[in-house]
Design a protein around this nucleic acid. Structure first.
Lengths: 115, 115
DNA sequence: GGCATATTCAACCGATTGGTTGACGATCCC
DNA sequence: GGGATCGTCAACCAATCGGTTGAATATGCC
């Protein structure tokens, strides 16, 4: 029924894959460079990347010989929303939050740069 | 190394287990009652509950014959924090967010984490 | 052309997962 | 005591997972 959450959570359940995501948080990387710090074969990393891509957590684009991997953090949104529905620990009303955002951010002061 | 996130995300990767958590969000339940809506054996549900308990997502307390299952949403906190570290999808300044919360919530409905 | 580099494919392997069934141990209640 | 209810245990099964190795496919470079 809800296989998007299945694949996202399953992808996040492996520490190698979480570490890959953490690495991609800093910058886009080629498959070989992703594999370098890990004590496993390139083929294994290639499989992990395929799983992350299937979950939508990364995208892959081939330029020439090398395939670049890019983090797609939006794929975490559904999972995050699901988790927040249990959120006694994150008790905010999302509608109110979005209203807050809409009112707080002027067109010229984008979120990251806000003083 | 980081097996807490492993077990939590793995537990969340199964739709049956997520549905169980959703049910427990409404109220504590006995094992038999948890199993009732599912088209699978009681033993299967018992295993799912053991996995959720091992991940810390529920607690189980036996009173007489019946074993009561209780949601433990705090176990989601570590996973939620991990996910938010990727939080381009949550582009808001956290300070502003907390200010919003402080202003929006009356003192009687403060979240547990509020200062 | 020919070699090196980047990545995947295919076959295999052992361990784990999600499910079943049947037997079993507790507990409640008449 | 004895039957019904609650839940787990143990053994089994097919499918999936995470990894390996070796061959294959592109692509870049001299």
């Amino acid at each position: 029924m809800n296989s998007a959450l299945d694949t996202v959570f399953a992808a996040l359940a492996d520490p190698t894959r979480r570490e890959i995501l953490r690495m991609l948080l800093e910058d886009d990387m080629a498959v070989t460079d992703v594999a370098y710090p890990f004590a496993m074969s390139l083929a294994a990393i290639s499989k992990h990347l395929a799983i992350l891509a299937a979950a939508g957590l990364i995208s892959q684009e081939k330029r020439g010989r090398v395939k670049w991997c890019k983090l797609e953090p939006d794929a975490l949104r559904a999972a995050s929303v699901w988790m927040q529905s249990f959120g006694q620990f994150e008790p905010v009303n999302l509608d109110a939050f979005e209203a807050f955002l809409a009112q707080e951010l002027t067109p010229t002061e984008l979120p990251e740069g806000a003083p």
